[in-house]
Design a protein around this nucleic acid. Structure first.
Lengths: 150, 150
DNA sequence: ATTGCTGCAAACTCTTTGCAAGTTC
DNA sequence: GAACTTGCAAAGAGTTTGCAGCAAT
């Protein structure tokens, strides 16, 4: 996972290629454990001592707006960032016995983040599936999918 | 869940009873959605306009140290607090077909927190179960069950 | 050449701390 | 009365912004 073409990513998101952006994105890809701005800065400055803190913050904002990275939750520390994954799991409805795919990258990130940080003793995690039980509140018999409101 | 005796909680944790602590703890119990210090302050000042911000922060620190409340994760906002719950769900092992109870209040908090904040469209959540698939790395044939409980 | 990026400094937000005055047991 | 708690003001950490100069297309 570590080295897809960083430049390609930048190009695909219509961002100008600058040494700072390349360096920052590389570091985020290398530091897989959801680094915060501080960790990114430290690592970055090993190879790139003159980069500015505000450039790093601005770049993180830019990457976030472009959808390259995403803020993820953290209990005690500062806001962290991670490369956006492409994954999904399932949503289960008990009333109608219906199962729907449930895409929620934020939730994935939060759970991953958590389980990366706090390992389960004597257990190697291979996959994680969240089963959310509840009731659909939309029209259920028809084909039509109305946006029903809260 | 809203009004167990706040004073009793304070006494049980060897804290002196002050109007500020009572008010703060009541507000945390009322605001179930993991309020942050800011939200606590706003709500608090409706009834208690003169309470100091630093008192609120100090009190939150005190409550956290005493185990009355706990910091929970948040994606974009500041640190939030919640009353510590007593709940669990299940851990599933696919290799041995073994299922174990999996206690993890932090994880509960994180998922609750998330789903409280971002509702699922047209769906009312009733229960949430996390199924973690993987392999046990402990001795596998034995009867022994390690408790991964705090 | 144009548009966008970097970096400095300063501002802002959230949280923590020192200390004097006040409160609880 | 002793010990703890409150609240002010000020400091700290993390993040954001304005702007002038610079770099990428």
């Amino acid at each position: 996972m570590a080295n897809r073409s960083v430049i390609e990513i930048l190009i695909n998101h219509n961002l100008k290629i600058t040494p700072q952006r390349i360096a920052i994105l590389e570091v985020i890809l290398i530091l897989e454990n959801h680094p915060d701005a501080d960790r990114i800065t430290d690592y970055l400055r090993l190879s790139n001592p003159n980069i500015s803190l505000s450039t790093i913050y601005k770049t993180l904002v830019t990457f976030t707006k472009k959808g390259i990275i995403k803020k993820v939750a953290t209990a005690k520390e500062s806001i962290r960032y991670d490369v956006i994954p492409e994954r999904h799991h399932h949503l289960y409805c008990s009333e109608s016995d219906r199962i729907e795919d449930f895409y929620d990258e934020d939730l994935n990130n939060i759970i991953d983040e958590y389980l990366n940080k706090k390992k389960i003793p004597n257990f190697t995690v291979e996959d994680i599936k969240l089963q959310i039980t509840g009731k659909f509140t939309e029209a259920k018999a028809g084909k039509k999918q109305l946006k029903s409101k809260p």
